[in-house]
Amino acid sequence: MNAPRFVGVASITAPPPDASQPYTYHELSSLAPTSTVLAEEVALAIAYNGISQAVMMVSPTDLDDFVVGFSLGSGIVASADEIYDVQLSGSGSARHADVQIASRAFWDLKQQRRQMAGTSGCGLCGVEAVEQALPNLAVLPGAPLPPAEWLTGLRERINDFQPLGQHCGAVHAALFMNDRGELLLGREDIGRHNALDKVIGALTRQNIPVTGGLAIVTSRCSLELIQKVLRAGIQTLISLSSPTGLALQWARRHNLNLIHLPKHSAPRVYSPAMETSR
């Protein structure tokens, strides 16, 4: 994975708020107020080459990683070197990301937007929307399954990478383990797909190779997470919750190692499928 040729990543114009702030509440059986901290979320409007594309509800941390990972994981750019610049602005609950991308990627994005025009009232958003939800992605070359010892005590080890979750809950986490079984980095967000986007963005911005490594998600594993790791070229995905049937089908079809790590039992390898003797 090549590092993006960023012209520059601007700082947010105002310091972001703490990821959690104290809020008061009272117990149902008592009127005495007390306080706790809750996870925060902000609206992030993302524009590519001046054209608005999406508004995402995200946790206000690692937004630069998120924008890069969202661009790659959503297929808006095919590679990191198609991202030229990211400018973040805004404060409070309203944030903005202005992204400059390569002309070819922008042309493809405009074509997708044109195909979607006029279909918003059809209920299923038209054939083009379905095709975009189920894109043709490259099949991975395949990789060995990770050694079992890499997963020993993994649930406990990832706690160190979930400070926000430990503090106030209400967030998901995604992490990356390198080809030596070392947990390198983690990101948290109110959205499980956002957390994975942040990890992909961090790997890209720090030019960390993904070969032989694996992604870990604390949430249920559905199709969009499979698509994101496929686009990132990560060959193994560990989920702390069960995958959906469609996610499993895609993992097997694209040579992605998919492993569920239950809380009280041994890891379950869903992909590749176990060959049974006749």
Rank of each mutant, 00 (worst) to 15 (best):
I226S: 03
I226N: 02
I226L: 10
I226D: 01
I226C: 05
Q227F: 11
Q227K: 13
K228Q: 15
K228A: 15
V229Q: 06
L230N: 10
L230G: 11
R231M: 09
R231A: 09
R231Y: 07
R231H: 10
A232W: 03
G233T: 07
I234R: 07
I234V: 15
I234Q: 08
I234M: 08
I234F: 11
I234H: 09
Q235R: 13
Q235Y: 04
Q235H: 14
T236N: 11
T236V: 12
L237F: 03
L237H: 07
L237M: 09
I238N: 10
I238G: 10
I238H: 08
S239E: 01
S239D: 02
L240T: 06
L240A: 10
S241C: 12
S241P: 00
S241L: 14
S242L: 14
S242T: 13
S242I: 11
S242D: 10
S242C: 09
S242F: 11
S242A: 15
P243S: 02
P243Q: 05
P243G: 04
P243D: 05
T244F: 09
T244I: 10
T244H: 11
G245H: 12
G245Y: 09
L246V: 12
A247L: 08
A247V: 06
A247C: 07
A247S: 10
A247T: 02
L248S: 13
L248D: 08
L248P: 00
Q249V: 05
Q249F: 06
Q249D: 14
W250E: 12
W250Y: 14
W250M: 13
W250D: 00
A251W: 00
A251E: 04
A251Q: 09
A251H: 05
R252W: 08
R252L: 15
R252P: 06
R252Q: 15
R253D: 13
H254Y: 12
H254S: 12
H254G: 07
N255K: 12
L256S: 06
L256H: 03
L256N: 02
L256W: 04
N257Q: 04
N257F: 01
N257M: 04
N257V: 03
N257H: 03
L258A: 02
L258I: 01
L258Q: 00
L258P: 00
L258H: 00
I259W: 04
H260R: 06
H260G: 01
H260N: 08
H260K: 04
L261W: 02
P262I: 03
P262T: 05
K263W: 11
H264E: 14
S265R: 07
S265I: 02
S265Q: 10
S265T: 12
A266P: 01
A266Q: 08
A266V: 11
A266C: 02
P267G: 05
P267M: 06
P267W: 06
R268A: 09
R268G: 00
R268M: 14
R268I: 15
R268S: 07
V269I: 08
V269L: 02
Y270H: 02
S271G: 01
S271T: 03
S271E: 02
P272T: 04
P272R: 08
P272D: 02
A273F: 04
A273I: 08
A273M: 09
A273E: 12
M274Q: 11
M274A: 12
E275C: 10
E275Q: 15
E275M: 13
